[in-house]
Amino acid sequence: MANDELLIKDEVWLRITQLEYKMKQGMSKEAFEKEVRRIYIEEMGEELPADMKVYSSNESGDLESDYDGTAIYFENEEKSINQLYVISQGSNDPGDWLYNAIGLFQGKDASQAIDVDTFVDEAKKEFNISDKEMLTVGLGHSLANNNNLTAQVLNQSFNKIYGVNGAQINAYQLYTADEFFARKVNNQFDLPLKDKNAIYTLPPHELEQFAVEYIEEKIDTSSIRQL
C-alpha cells in the first residue's frame, strides 16, 4: 500500500467529516472510531487496514480560539501506513458565527486558522509521531475549509487538503495573520505602515489578484481538492 491515502475516496472523507460534528455533541472516541470503521467498510468493501487513534480539541489546553477539530492517526507498520487526518469543524456555535463575521467577512481575526497548526502539532505529540514519511491531510466543511487553507499558507500544515462547500481564503484575513504578506502588500500598494485599515481602501479585485499570486508562490495548490 506504501502509505496510499486511506480516506481518498470522496464518499469516505465526506461522511467522516460530517460524522466529526458529533464529537462536539459528546460522542466518545470509542463510538467515533467504530463509526469510522463502519463507514470505511461500507464504502470500500473491506476493513480499515490500520490501527486507529483519536485526539479531540476538547482535550487541548493550548488553543486560544473557539477552534474545534478531531485528529485521527492511522498506523500499520507492516503495510507502511503512517497517516494523520485532521478534521477541522465548521460553524457550529455562536462563537463560530461571531468569528465568521469578524474573521471571514471583515478579515480582522485569524485565530482559528492559527490554532489549526497548534492542534496539528498537539496531535503529533499526543500520538508520539514524527514527520518522517508521514502523510498529513486536512479535512473540512464551511468555515473549516477556510481555517485549513489559511493554516496551509501560514505554516504549510498539511500535505493535502480536502474541503466541501468551503469558505475560501480571505485576503484581508491573510493580511492580518501573515506579516510577510502584509509587508508585500504595503510595499506593492504604498500603504502607510501605521494605518491597519488602509488596506480597505484598495480596489478589492487588485488585492485579490495579488493575494492569489502570493498564495500560489507559497503552497502547491494542486494538493487542494474542493467540492
Rank of each mutant, 00 (worst) to 15 (best):
2 A>P: 03
3 N>S: 08
3 N>W: 09
3 N>H: 11
3 N>F: 06
4 D>G: 06
4 D>H: 15
4 D>R: 14
5 E>I: 07
6 L>N: 08
6 L>R: 06
6 L>P: 00
6 L>E: 02
7 L>Q: 01
7 L>R: 04
8 I>N: 09
8 I>P: 02
8 I>A: 15
9 K>L: 06
9 K>V: 14
9 K>P: 00
9 K>N: 12
9 K>S: 11
10 D>I: 02
11 E>Q: 10
12 V>A: 07
12 V>S: 09
12 V>F: 04
13 W>D: 06
13 W>G: 07
14 L>T: 09
14 L>E: 09
14 L>I: 15
14 L>D: 05
15 R>A: 14
15 R>G: 08
16 I>D: 03
16 I>Y: 04
17 T>L: 08
17 T>A: 15
17 T>S: 13
19 L>C: 03
19 L>F: 08
19 L>Q: 02
20 E>H: 05
21 Y>A: 09
21 Y>G: 01
21 Y>Q: 05
21 Y>V: 05
22 K>I: 02
22 K>F: 11
23 M>N: 14
24 K>N: 01
24 K>M: 10
24 K>R: 12
24 K>F: 10
25 Q>E: 15
26 G>M: 02
26 G>S: 05
27 M>H: 10
27 M>K: 07
28 S>M: 06
29 K>W: 03
29 K>D: 13
31 A>I: 12
31 A>V: 07
31 A>W: 06
31 A>Q: 12
31 A>C: 02
32 F>W: 08
33 E>A: 14
33 E>C: 05
34 K>E: 15
34 K>S: 14
34 K>G: 01
35 E>L: 09
35 E>Y: 07
36 V>E: 00
36 V>Q: 01
37 R>P: 00
38 R>D: 09
39 I>V: 15
40 Y>C: 01
40 Y>L: 01
41 I>F: 09
41 I>W: 12
41 I>L: 12
42 E>D: 15
42 E>R: 08
43 E>L: 05
44 M>K: 14
44 M>S: 05
44 M>F: 04
45 G>K: 01
45 G>N: 04
45 G>S: 04
47 E>Y: 06
47 E>R: 09
48 L>H: 07
49 P>W: 07
49 P>E: 13
50 A>K: 03
50 A>M: 02
53 K>Q: 15
53 K>W: 11
55 Y>M: 11
56 S>N: 11
56 S>R: 06
56 S>K: 10
57 S>P: 03
58 N>M: 12
58 N>W: 01
59 E>M: 11
59 E>T: 01
59 E>Y: 13
59 E>N: 05
60 S>C: 15
60 S>P: 02
60 S>A: 09
61 G>F: 06
62 D>G: 06
62 D>R: 12
63 L>R: 10
63 L>V: 08
63 L>Y: 13
63 L>M: 08
64 E>I: 08
64 E>N: 12
65 S>G: 13
